[in-house]
């Protein structure tokens, strides 16, 4: 058994969380509230250290007065506590939204649209070895059919009837197969998290595994 008090605390809290597998109980509730409360405190410190101190305190102490502009804009959020001037807090929200949307449109076009279209282009060399799993014609055509049908599934301006229904049905099959693969992959990752926690309990806490 470990003699480190922190290992004991971590192990007992882990067991408290696992106790939910049986049913909701006071021990689980204690651990849950402790976790939520601690995370708030931790985040306050993190926000101060990583943002407020870095981007406000240091620049102002170095007399970089330009910092006062974004700082003033950020402080407009505080007007939510003044009912008559609450509308002022919409200014920083509007600025944030505008900047992010303006920034993301070209990025999405470049990173998602153009790259996806490039990856969909079939070439004549694919005819040489049609069954090649990397660069064969069959794979190339599957990608084209998958992309076109999936895009058509997300077409909302028409009812899915006739050919559009067929195409969108094929599209949702592609989507679901993709989700299935993603599901399996993520479940594996979650299993490794569980294994990590059990390893901690058996190795560092009770020293059953050495």
């Amino acid at each position: 058994m470990s003699t480190d008090i922190w290992v004991w605390i971590a192990a007992l809290l882990s067991l408290a969380i696992f106790s939910y597998l049986y049913k909701d109980n006071p021990v689980f509730r204690f651990a849950e509230h402790l976790f939520t409360g601690l995370s708030v405190g931790y985040m306050i410190v993190l926000m101060w250290n990583n943002y407020a101190y870095q981007y406000i305190v240091i620049p102002i102490s170095q007399q970089r007065w330009i910092t006062l502009i974004p700082m003033a804009l950020g402080m407009l959020y505080l007007f939510r506590f003044v009912p008559k001037l609450q509308h002022l807090m919409l200014i920083p929200i509007a600025i944030t939204l505008g900047i992010w949307n303006g920034w993301s449109i070209p990025v999405v076009i470049e990173a998602d649209l153009f790259k996806q279209m490039q990856g969909t282009m079939v070439n004549t060399t694919m005819f040489q070895n049609p069954w090649d799993p990397h660069n064969g014609l069959v794979v190339g055509l599957l990608v084209v059919v998958g992309v076109v049908c999936t895009v058509l599934y997300f077409y909302f301006s028409r009812e899915h009837r006739g050919p559009l229904k067929v195409a969108s049905s094929v599209g949702i099959w592609f989507v679901m197969i993709g989700f299935g693969a993603s599901f399996g992959y993520t479940v594996m990752a979650r299993m490794s998290l569980l294994i990590g926690r059990i390893q901690f309990l058996f190795t560092e806490w009770i020293h059953l595994i050495k």
Binding site: K115, M117, Q118, T120, M121, N123, V144, V151, Y155
Partner: peptide, 30 residues
């Protein structure tokens, strides 16, 4: 989306007819 699908199908057909077109299209998308 409809425009993208049309361009995709048209580009695909053209690049199969004339392989040189494929390079041109890829260049446009770079």
């Amino acid at each position: 989306k409809a425009l993208i699908v049309l361009l995709l199908v048209a580009g695909l057909a053209l690049s199969l007819i004339n392989p040189g077109v494929r390079g041109f299209i890829l260049n446009i998308l770079t």
